[in-house]
Design a protein around this nucleic acid. Sequence first.
DNA 1: CCAATATATCAACGTTTCTTGAAATATAGA
DNA 2: TCTATATTTCAAGAAACGTTGATATATTGG
Lengths: 119, 119
Amino acid sequence: MDERQALAAFAAMAQEHRLRIVRHLVTAGPDGLAAGVLANAVEVSTSNLSFHLKELDHAGLIQSRREGRSIIYSAVYPALSGLIAFLMRDCCQGRPEVCAPAVAALSACCTPAGETAHA
Amino acid sequence: MDERQALAAFAAMAQEHRLRIVRHLVTAGPDGLAAGVLANAVEVSTSNLSFHLKELDHAGLIQSRREGRSIIYSAVYPALSGLIAFLMRDCCQGRPEVCAPAVAALSACCTPAGETAHA
DNA sequence: CCAATATATCAACGTTTCTTGAAATATAGA
DNA sequence: TCTATATTTCAAGAAACGTTGATATATTGG
């Protein structure tokens, strides 16, 4: 992930409706959600949703596939991982202790309760 | 970190000059950089820099202190950690395997080469 | 106090982004 | 093929954002 891509990703998520769309798709998992379902969930018109979905697609954060009459959208998880890696890349230049809390926060998210890594 | 804060943070970083400012401050470490130094590094006018610094400050991503005639800006690292945690929060609802790559990417950034955590 | 340095504020302008509603495209079933 | 469903495209207007240059504020040294 370079600066251009990171900028596009940040811009894509710097909008209320789009941030909600991404979060809905992230929690929906790899199966994704139909555009119509998203429109209801985020409460925007279908044409407005379409506008935002295109923005997110251009930023590489989501992908789509057709299924019958519906278009199913889903999150591109590696794009999120890449954005996180980009955010923290410079953070470690000689100072791992600065980003250690970030690692801890993220690790906690994927670790069963009560189980924590040793320092 | 709630949606409002995350939105403010994404919006703050969704701008070329501001993203560069944040990265300069992140790499500069807790000591920070004077506004004038940043203006040279990012190549914007001082008044424009001031505008962007205010945006970043409002988003809680940076902080400032006066030192003589200079104002020294520095990154607020917990805000970055919080943003990362927010980004991935929903990612783990029943599917830890989805965000495991993100954890790996971030962990690698803070881990001495050759040393990796066990699964 | 005065001048120089460092930064912030303000108003005006141009640009980008978001929203809306109408019309177009694609698919499926009768 | 006709109609209904699902989604996208387009143009126009409104709103938010970024840049500029002039001016204001704060600090330091003479």
